[in-house]
Design a protein around this nucleic acid. Structure first.
Lengths: 214, 214
DNA sequence: GCTATCTTGTGAATGTTTTCACACTCTCCC
DNA sequence: GGGAGAGTGTGAAAACATTCACAAGATAGC
């Protein structure tokens, strides 16, 4: 009988974590609507999965529900926030001040979930010095220095594919803890630095495949 | 002994298609560098997987390599292009002319791979009429009409989460063939309309989880 | 307190994806 | 033309993920 815990010993699958993230969103919405209790089945329908899957996902971390009743929305909300490490704000740097960088810089959902951008870098002299909100776009020559000064945890890489690996090497060297990559190339980072890829081309080509093949 | 074919009968896994997309990129690069032959192992290292995985992925579609030698770069390139349905250009519409929409509109990698945006929509009167390249941002009231006129295949949804499901319902009703969704909500579309989600929040939260848990 | 009803938590079964390991084919060189 | 080396294609095994199905805990009504 597992006790609720955010640090299970055994390995958690990436798909479980992905789904937790979705459950969290639905819980936030339900909470906002004053719903106080929710069943695995409701959670499942919303997230496009099954109730058994929801229960399995949660059971990895503990027992959060009440049999016959379901889950307390505020409690589960809090539990998943803790599991996902969203308790404190994360300090984020944005590398690349192009159009994508600009879109991410003011992307509300990031801010709302505690991902705060504390530095923006670019290598283009035309961009360096631009005022973005209460930050200035900085010369990426100062990357290592500013990363340390600002105690940055996570870097969002939004540079062209050709430049991405070099940036990642520097980030890793500077002790970054995690990387979210928007460049359409698979990146190589040291094993202890998790990298997540948001590859829009892969997704679009996946769609192309699905349309092309019946 | 399977013959090379782009229309295998059995179901192809999503991860296989994703990886094909990555192999394709590396092949394009190798081809650009004048490399004429490549092994599954080289392909694997680049894509962060194993040579057995590469061979299995390809074997689903046929036999493309030569034993003892590897794969002919131009041949495999062409084969994967065909498998992914990248032979002809796709006609794309962009729904949502905010910052993300703007970034996607001028995203080179889409254009280079034959995804051409032929219409941009928004519901904000301040945006409607803006000139974007050689297009005008159109009132999304005309969505259905323009989709048909322009023979649009794929819609890229870049609207706020709250508005996304309604947009998808209209797109599905208007006979769209596929949807690439950037809104941070799981969308429900009819079974015959494939939907791909690019959920940046899920990825960032996945990173948060990884950092928080050892 | 008893019964009926609901919904969780979870082993076991099933299904899917990845990895292993090796027979087989092709090339090159002597 | 035969032997060595390289690297594919693929069944079989292992790992991993999802679904099933049901016992057990919780509630509500009487």
């Amino acid at each position: 009988m597992p006790v609720p815990s955010a640090r299970p010993s055994k390995k958690i699958s990436e798909s479980t974590v992905r789904r937790l993230s979705l459950y969290l969103r639905f819980l936030e919405e339900a909470d906002g609507n004053g719903v106080s209790t929710i069943s695995s089945d409701e959670l499942a329908q919303r997230g496009g999965t099954t109730s058994a899957q929801v229960r399995k996902d949660l059971s990895v971390f503990g027992s959060f529900g009440k049999r016959g009743l379901g889950y307390s929305v505020p409690e589960l909300l809090e539990a998943i926030r803790e599991i996902l490490g969203l308790g404190d704000a994360w300090r984020v740097a944005l590398i690349g001040a192009g159009k994508i960088g600009a879109a991410l810089f003011s992307y509300r959902p990031f801010q709302e979930r505690g991902f705060h951008i504390h530095a923006v870098f670019d290598s283009d002299p035309a961009k360096i010095g631009e005022r973005w909100g209460d930050l200035c776009v900085r010369d990426d020559a100062h990357l290592e220095q500013v990363l340390a000064e600002q105690k940055i945890d996570i870097a969002i890489v939004a540079v062209p594919g050709e430049a991405a690996q070099a940036v990642v090497d520097r980030l890793a060297g500077a002790g970054i803890r995690g990387i979210l990559n928007f460049a359409p190339v698979p990146l190589h980072a040291p094993g202890h630095v998790p990298v997540r890829n948001v590859d829009m081309v892969v997704e679009l080509e996946g769609l192309s495949f699905a349309l092309h093949n019946g």
